[in-house]
Amino acid sequence: MKWLRIFGVLFIFALAMRLLKRGTEMNHMSEFVYRIDCASSLYEQRLSDKTLRAKRKDGNEKEYPHHQIKKAHKYAPNGTAVFRLCFWKTLEDALNHCSPGWVVQRIKSDHNFLNSCERDYDEYFQDKSAYIFWKTMPVNQKNETWSPEGISHDDIEVLLPDGSWVPMSEVGIFRECDLGWERAGVEGNLTVQFKQKSLPDGNWVFLRQRFGNAPIYSTNPSAFYPLIKSISSELPWQLNSVRWVWSYEMPTQVIARELFIVFYSHNRKGLLGIIDKFRSRKNENELKIMDEKNLDESGIKKLYEGFNVSDILIRGYTWVYNFK
């Protein structure tokens, strides 16, 4: 019995030391934790909710159930649920599990939301290369799958393919509007940004539409006429020498078309024409898109480089970390 007691004491002591060590490790994390997400998924997420939210779990999932989640779910009060987030421990761990088209992000390990969560090592990585964070929270009745609280995208940095870190809102694929570009409404929505610039191959007006609405030019070209007419009235160049291009920036690719537009004056006839001359009334320019041409990949690249927004083209499977 004496030896059994000694063994019991030693076992409890070893268990306590193990728990103490784990608690110490959890309280002394490195400055950042890391995530990887598909670029297109992040793009679409930002269209409606610029917040990283934890997903609802109960610990009984077919794939990767966690015993910590199962225990927390068992004691969750009515009207609440357990929500879980997963992170990689180091940048190297994140890069080792990253494929083309996936984006590495980092978040301060002492972020307020993470500090409000419980945390532990992910049991499916014996090398302790991953963490899980979980929290019991009230269920949002409008969206029961995701946590009501989370981490703002403003608090998340993204690793660019060139190895630099920038805030998510400044990343080309995620930027909503670029400095020096004007925004305009087409069909009642602020969906187009445009800019004019002289390049070696001509004077250009570039109309860009981001994914989130149907590609307006493809579905209704005439919807662009009022905008083109408005822009053309302010241009310093002869209108019929201007080159116009429209692009549609989707999560995985960018398409662009050069528009061949003819401008002409609409002269009123008869008495109305005489009155116009007497009043020195300027004839309004009318326009018609006579033809169009799809730009190939090299043409799109040249155009975006000319307008100094080539980083926007890094999306889909072109998002690759070659320095791993």
Rank of each mutant, 00 (worst) to 15 (best):
D291T: 13
A223D: 10
P161T: 12
R56D: 00
E170G: 07
Q209M: 04
A54R: 12
G299C: 03
L199F: 02
G101D: 08
K62V: 11
R268E: 15
K50A: 00
A130P: 01
V254D: 07
F133T: 07
A81T: 01
N283P: 03
I107S: 04
P200R: 14
K269C: 13
L295A: 04
R257K: 13
D296P: 08
G79S: 01
N285M: 14
F307Q: 04
E258L: 06
P138A: 00
I156G: 04
T90I: 09
I312N: 12
I156H: 00
I6E: 12
K135D: 09
S230N: 10
G299S: 10
F32A: 04
W146Q: 02
I132S: 04
S218T: 00
L190K: 03
T136D: 14
G212W: 08
A256I: 11
K293L: 04
L303N: 06
T24F: 14
F125H: 13
Q68F: 08
Q253S: 03
D58G: 10
N140Y: 10
Q209H: 04
K293D: 02
S48R: 05
F113M: 05
V192H: 02
W134H: 02
K55G: 00
W204E: 06
I261K: 12
E286A: 12
P77N: 04
F7N: 06
D110A: 00
K70N: 08
W88F: 14
K62M: 02
L159F: 09
I231A: 04
S152T: 07
G202W: 15
T252P: 02
N294L: 11
W246F: 14
M168N: 04
E176N: 10
I255H: 04
K229V: 12
D120N: 10
H97I: 06
K197C: 01
V158R: 08
A39S: 09
T145Y: 05
R210H: 11
G8K: 05
R53S: 00
R35T: 02
L207H: 06
H266K: 13
D120H: 01
Y225W: 03
R257H: 08
E149P: 03
G101T: 10
H111A: 01
F32G: 07
S298K: 08
H28Q: 09
E123K: 07
R22Y: 12
F87T: 15
A130V: 13
E297G: 00
K293Q: 12
S129C: 15
Y34H: 04
K302P: 01
P100G: 02
E92A: 07
V166E: 15
I151S: 00
L271T: 10
G316E: 14
T24Y: 07
W134D: 01
P251L: 13
A94N: 05
F278D: 09
L239K: 15
D201A: 02
E292L: 14
Y64E: 03
R281M: 05
Y217G: 01
